[in-house]
Every structure is written in C-alpha cells, then in structure tokens.
Amino acid sequence: MEGVGVVEGTGDGVSRFAVGQRVGWMAGGQGSFSDYVLVDQMKAVGLPDSIEDEVAAASLMQALPPTISPPIRTPSPKATSW
C-alpha cells in the first residue's frame, strides 16, 4: 500500500521526520485510505511540496519491483536448441 500524508505525531525514537512534515510511504497491509496511518519511519520518505500527492504515491510504487522482487532467471539456450 502506498500513500502520501503529513506527519501528525511521532513515537519515541523517531528521528527522521517531524510533525508537519510531508511524507510518502510504501508498506504492506491496509490503511492508505484512512484518516490516520501508523507507518514505520524506515518505510517512509520526505516529500517536497513541489510534487503532487498522486505523482508522489505513483512514483513510490514504480521503484518497488526491482528492489524487492527476486530476479527472473531464465535458462540459457543451448547451442543445439537453435
């Protein structure tokens, strides 16, 4: 689930973001359509105001597959199979 929002509060030990900061996140589970979402700071990135919410959320998803998906391995063709 990807989403974009503004930090409303932080827990103990949160150092990457401050209340009022705009962030985007990618995390498993439900909640991006909720009024409030609990997100691990390591699964969020700060966002500049110049990037629209829809573009930011879509961009987060674009970088995901190559970073978490295992590489696709196809057998090499044998010289005799051509």
Rank of each mutant, 00 (worst) to 15 (best):
P71D: 04
A27E: 09
E2H: 13
S15T: 15
R16C: 10
P77R: 07
L60I: 11
D53Y: 02
L47S: 03
A79M: 03
M1P: 08
M1F: 03
F33T: 15
D12T: 10
Q21T: 11
K78E: 09
G29F: 00
T67H: 10
M1R: 10
E8C: 07
V19P: 11
I51N: 03
T10V: 13
V19K: 11
E54V: 15
V4H: 02
G20S: 11
V6A: 13
D49G: 13
A57E: 01
G31F: 01
Q21V: 05
E2L: 10
S81V: 07
D35V: 13
I72G: 07
S50I: 07
T67M: 13
D49V: 11
G46Y: 04
P66I: 08
I51R: 03
E8H: 06
T74H: 10
Q30T: 15
Q41M: 04
A63C: 12
K43G: 13
D40I: 10
A18E: 14
D12A: 09
V19F: 00
D12S: 09
T10K: 03
E2A: 15
A79V: 04
S59N: 12
A56L: 02
I51S: 05
G46H: 07
L64E: 05
S76M: 05
S69L: 09
F17K: 02
G31H: 04
S69H: 05
V39Y: 00
F17V: 08
M1G: 13
F33P: 11
A57K: 00
V55K: 03
M61V: 10
T10R: 03
M61T: 09
D49L: 08
A79E: 03
F17Y: 03
S34Q: 04
T67Q: 12
A57G: 05
G20M: 06
I72D: 11
L60M: 11
V45N: 02
D53F: 05
S34L: 03
M26H: 05
W82H: 13
S59V: 13
V14Q: 05
V39M: 00
D53T: 14
D35T: 15
G24F: 04
R22G: 07
A63E: 02
V6K: 13
P75Y: 02
A18P: 14
S15E: 14
G13V: 09
G20C: 09
K43Q: 14
V4S: 08
S32H: 12
V7E: 06
A44G: 04
Q62Y: 07
Q30S: 14
A44M: 01
A57Y: 00
V23H: 00
G13H: 07
P48H: 08
S81T: 11
V45H: 01
D12E: 12
V14E: 08
G5T: 08
M61I: 06
Q21S: 10
S76H: 06
P70R: 12
G24M: 12
E8L: 08
S50R: 06
A44F: 00
L64S: 12
F17A: 03
R22W: 00
A79R: 06
L47M: 05
P70D: 02
V23N: 01
S81H: 07
P65V: 10
G29L: 01
T67I: 12
G31W: 00
L38I: 15
P66Q: 07
